[in-house]
Design a protein around this nucleic acid. Structure first.
Length: 509
RNA sequence: GGCCCGUUCGUCUAAGGGCUAGGACACCACCCUUUCACGGUGGUGAUACGGGUUCGAAUCCCGUACGGGCUACCA
């Protein structure tokens, strides 16, 4: 199977939250697994308006998670255009809409927004809170089915604004096989006459997705479960326009849920976790939505946690590289129920990846954060060593700053309440002797430093345990970090002695 | 309201008619560690409910309840 073409069209506001990216991921994994192409169509409009910077944002997100589309605006093949904003230009949707009208599957509707609202007002009851423009009501509206041919022609000649609506059959069962859910059926009598072409000439999603998928020769179409109710419209359009034999196989992916239903952009701010891949600032409102990248997630972890939210390979394995995911992925193993997003587990994935990732790669990710804190990062060997010794205690990338800054700079302050109460002249003397001994130690290694420490402690008849905490606080400033003697070994003889001396002074004041 | 989808520990999930329903996150305890972590061992904890079918049901069927989605000239 090498002719698979899967398509995904992320939009800037809705498309790149967790659910959207997982959909991209699954599209990508499926295409790669089956040797096919992953084609990206950019939804750079929102509510019909062009969104500044959307395309760049989307492409950067995909680059971050290392998913490069085989075809996209930046990397076109022969099936473009790849931008939502280019859709209207070629007039192709208009052409298909007119074909549907000629064949009796669609019609012109001249109703103004006010008239539509009036209709809804009129028919709204408790039993029917959302009246539909459907086969029962369309006869009462102003359209080419209710109006005579002459009037229709006159309205069109007068350039009256119109939309094209699908003419839903009155009594048919429309069904299809979903790759995840199996057979799904709908009664057309209950479905409304969806708008296919808007008054401005733009297609709605319903027309666009069918026409695009055909023109792009898409074989598999995966999207969120929220699209399931409109699937019958798309099935019917395929039947009318191109025939079922060309229709892609569908899969409706389960939703990713927040604490209250479908995960929304707002949930992030509300519950303190990111919902977008990267920071996104809405150009109109200037509102910032936080991203996983900026929060300190590794792309490897992000992909991993997303893939496992609703899918597993049947074993107990939880940690997968992108390559492994491509090998193992199968749409049949995607869970059909929605998954509630658990930020704690997401953090766990990142922690695992921080422990797992190649140290050089990890260093590359951490260095910019250290730089931002004004930490000098020229000595690569030194940084690598530091990162290796602190990685186990870091969950998010910014943890590296707090966990390692003392390797680069002496502490600015010490946790005095932790030492002062038990500080005395004997201990002060010990550290004087210890500093002298360190100055003379031939080899500067963790084990030698520890030996010196214990020997002098024995000589002075102080338990080493009572001295380790003060020593740690001298080097680190607080009660955290890797083993003290390792820290001393890494920061070096001169620096260790200097920190002991300045701390002893402060402790004895 | 109508339509559609769904329902296994608090959360993500495994088990596709047959062992004491398995794992992971989180939580708790212990061990390791004279810091904080990592790690190790163990523990608490689930098949929504009611009917069928069957020798046998988490698994198949029906109903109920609950949850979610959709119901725009948004996607």
């Amino acid at each position: 199977m090498s002719n698979v073409r899967v398509r995904f069209a992320p939009s800037p506001t809705g498309g790149l939250h967790l659910g959207g990216i997982r959909t991209v991921l699954y599209n990508y994994l499926f295409a790669k697994k089956h040797g096919g192409k992953f084609v990206l169509r950019i939804e750079d409009t929102d509510q019909g308006r062009y969104v500044e910077g959307a395309e760049e944002y989307i492409m950067e997100c995909l680059k971050w998670i290392n998913i490069e589309p085989d075809e996209s605006p930046a990397n076109p093949g022969t099936y473009g255009p790849y931008r939502q904003s280019e859709r209207k230009a070629n007039g192709i949707y208009q052409q298909y809409a007119e074909q549907l009208i000629r064949d009796g599957h669609a019609y012109y509707a001249f109703d103004t927004p006010e008239e539509l609202e009036a209709m809804r007002q009129l028919h709204r009851t408790d039993a029917n809170p959302t009246p539909q423009y459907d086969h029962k009501l369309r006869k009462q509206m102003r359209n080419s089915l209710s109006l005579d041919a002459e009037t229709t022609k006159r309205l069109l000649d007068e350039k009256t604004r119109y939309v094209v609506r699908i003419k839903m059959p009155e009594n048919e069962t429309v069904g299809f096989t979903d790759m995840i859910r199996g057979e799904v059926n709908f009664e057309t009598s209950l479905i409304d006459d969806k708008v296919l072409l808007k008054a401005d000439g733009m297609p709605t999603y319903h027309l666009a997705v069918v026409v695009d998928d055909k023109l792009m020769e898409i074989t598999h179409a995966f999207r969120g479960e929220e699209w399931l109710p409109s699937a019958p419209v798309h099935i019917l359009l395929w039947k009318y326009l191109f025939g079922f034999e060309h229709m892609p196989k569908w899969a409706h992916l389960p939703l990713i849920l927040g604490p209250n239903g479908k995960l929304s952009k707002r949930d992030g701010a509300k519950y303190g976790f990111p919902v977008f891949a990267m920071n996104w600032t809405d150009p109109k409102t200037n509102e910032l939505t936080e991203g996983f990248r900026e929060k300190g997630f590794l792309p490897e972890a992000f992909i991993n946690l997303l893939a496992l939210l609703g899918w597993n390979d049947g074993s107990e394995k939880e940690l997968f590289t992108l390559t492994e995911l491509i090998h193992q992925f199968s749409m049949e193993r995607v869970h059909s129920a929605g998954a509630k997003f658990d930020y704690e587990k997401a953090r766990w994935f990142n922690h695992e990846w921080i422990k797992l990732l190649d140290a050089d790669k990890l260093t590359k990710a951490v260095v910019p954060l250290l730089k931002a804190e004004g930490i000098e990062t020229k000595d690569e060997d030194f940084i690598l060593q530091v990162i290796k010794t602190v990685r186990d205690r870091c969950t998010l990338l910014p943890d590296f700053v707090t966990q390692s800054s003392f390797f680069f700079k002496a502490p600015i302050s010490w946790d005095l309440p932790a030492v002062k109460p038990k500080w005395n002249a004997d201990k002060e003397k010990f550290f004087h002797l210890f500093a002298e001994e360190l100055d003379a130690t031939p080899d500067w290694q963790s084990a030698f430093i520890e030996d010196a420490f214990k020997t002098i402690a024995a000589l002075q008849q102080i338990k080493p345990g009572e001295l380790q905490l003060p020593f740690r606080i001298m080097l680190v400033g607080g009660k955290f970090g890797p083993p003290v003697f390792d820290i001393a070994a890494i920061i070096g003889r001169k620096e260790t002695i200097a920190r002991i001396k300045s701390a002893v002074k402060a402790f004895s004041e």
